[in-house]
Computed example of a mutant assay.
Amino acid sequence: MYVLDTEKHHHPHIHIRYNEFKAVLKIPDGEVLEGSLPQRQMKLVQAWVELHQDERMADWYLASTGQTPFKIDPLR
Rank of each mutant, 00 (worst) to 15 (best):
T65D: 03
D73L: 11
H11M: 01
H13W: 05
M57S: 11
R17Y: 02
A58Q: 06
E20T: 03
L33D: 13
F70S: 05
H10R: 13
W60G: 07
L4R: 14
L33Q: 13
I14Y: 00
E31F: 13
P74M: 05
P12H: 15
V49D: 01
E34F: 11
I16P: 02
K26S: 10
F70A: 06
P12K: 15
F21E: 08
Y18M: 06
Y2E: 03
V3R: 08
A47E: 14
E20F: 02
L33K: 15
Y2G: 02
W48S: 01
Q41V: 13
H15F: 06
D59S: 13
F21T: 01
M42F: 04
M42E: 15
K26L: 02
E50H: 10
H13Y: 03
E7I: 00
Q67T: 04
Q41N: 07
H13D: 01
V32E: 14
Q46R: 15
P12F: 11
E7A: 03
H11E: 01
S36L: 12
R56P: 00
S64W: 02
Q41I: 13
S36W: 12
Y18C: 12
Q41P: 00
V24W: 05
E34L: 12
M1W: 02
L37I: 03
Q46S: 10
L25A: 12
L51A: 15
R17V: 08
H13F: 05
Y18I: 09
D59R: 11
L37W: 02
H15C: 08
H10F: 04
K43C: 10
E50T: 13
S36N: 15
V24K: 11
H11L: 03
I14F: 00
E55H: 13
L62P: 10
A23K: 05
S36C: 13
P38V: 02
P74N: 11
I14T: 14
W48H: 04
I16K: 09
L44G: 06
P38A: 07
K22P: 00
H9N: 04
P28S: 14
A47L: 11
P38W: 12
Y18T: 04
K43T: 12
Q46H: 06
H52E: 07
P28V: 04
E7V: 01
D54N: 09
L51C: 07
P69C: 05
S36Q: 15
E34Q: 15
E50Q: 15
Y2Q: 03
H13C: 07
P28G: 09
E34N: 14
Q39T: 14
V24A: 14
D73M: 09
P28M: 06
P74E: 03
H52N: 15
N19P: 00
R40M: 10
K43W: 06
E31V: 10
G35M: 13
K43Y: 04
G30D: 07
Q39N: 14
E50F: 05
V3G: 13
H11D: 00
T68R: 12
Y18D: 08
P74L: 05
M57W: 08
D5G: 05
T65V: 08
I27W: 08
G66M: 10
P38S: 08
R76F: 00
E31S: 11
G30R: 11
K43V: 12
R76W: 01
K43P: 01
F21V: 08
L33M: 15
F21L: 09
Q39E: 15
G66K: 02
Q41R: 07
R76N: 12
P74T: 13
E55S: 14
V49I: 15
Q39M: 12
L33E: 09
H52T: 14
